[in-house]
Simulated assay, not measured.
Amino acid sequence: MFFSKKTGELKPKKKESIWSILGVIVFALLLKATVLTIFIIPSGSMIPTLNVGDVLIVNRLYFGLSNPLREAWYADKLLFVLPNPWFQSGSPLVKTRFLLNFGVKPKRLDIVIFKVPLSPQPARDYTYEIDGKTLHAYFIQPGRAGMDYVKRCIGLPGDVVELRNGRVLINGEYLPDQDKFTWNNDNSYYGPLKVPEGHYFVLGDNRPHSSDSRYWGFVPEDHLVGVARWIALPPWRWRILK
């Protein structure tokens, strides 16, 4: 018997079971925060590559061993209610992005998971130079700041990104084979825009319906979470992502 009627206390076996369950929960959360995580596609911004409801397995070890406390840096509330004393804290305990940085950088066309910047990056009024000309880009406040987003990495640090009639140019040359991942109803023009050092330019494959770097700016390197490698569910959608 696991419960004593006389003392009203839990017997040791019952206490051990509770601690075992808590241990499993903590282990699962650490695994999710550092190794692998599941990401469910909430919108159509990545059609045709990813559909609403697709379940992705994300490799969080791609860039390094993540600091599980880093999540507290992005949220102004704990459990959506309590004030978060670590929000944008300068403490290395939560500010540090990686416990172990592998030094790996995202490749062009990788599908990346990242934290939406809390404000336009690198600035709301971004000034840059192309061919000796000083240009400006104006970004808006990101929606759902601090949440996880999934987009395709298009521009690497130092690149000049441009859209002409919906076609992507990198450093003046059209990106090859973009029909494989681009939604074909995009006829937009954008840029040219220079990607600052330490940042990345991301786009949704379904660009007419995507909130991305064209609007709220670039993704800082320390906001990268991982790379999506395969669609796990539904079973008829299972495939490796390229």
Rank of each mutant, 00 (worst) to 15 (best):
L135S: 13
G90K: 12
T96Y: 03
T34F: 00
R167I: 09
L82K: 13
I40F: 12
D131W: 08
Y128E: 10
I18K: 03
V55N: 03
R164V: 09
V81L: 06
K11L: 15
F80C: 00
S188Q: 05
N206S: 00
V58C: 01
P142E: 00
L10I: 07
R152V: 04
S43E: 11
L118W: 00
T49Q: 02
L169N: 09
K13D: 07
Y190K: 10
Y62V: 10
H209W: 12
G226S: 10
I57Y: 10
L203H: 09
V24A: 15
P120E: 09
G53Y: 09
K133T: 05
N59R: 07
G44F: 04
P85A: 03
Y128G: 11
P192E: 08
L163I: 09
G23K: 11
A75W: 00
A123K: 11
L78Q: 05
A232Q: 12
V52A: 01
D179F: 13
I140N: 13
K180G: 09
G204E: 11
F102R: 15
S17T: 14
D186R: 04
P85V: 00
A232C: 03
Y174E: 14
K107L: 12
M147F: 14
I240Y: 10
L224A: 07
K107R: 15
L56K: 03
D179Y: 12
V160Q: 03
N67G: 05
L169I: 10
D222F: 01
V160A: 05
G166A: 05
K14D: 06
D222H: 12
V26C: 08
P234K: 09
D148N: 14
W73T: 04
W236Y: 13
I170S: 05
S210M: 05
L61A: 06
P92G: 02
D76P: 15
I231V: 06
A75H: 06
Y128Q: 07
W236V: 04
Y62K: 00
F102N: 05
S4W: 09
E173Y: 12
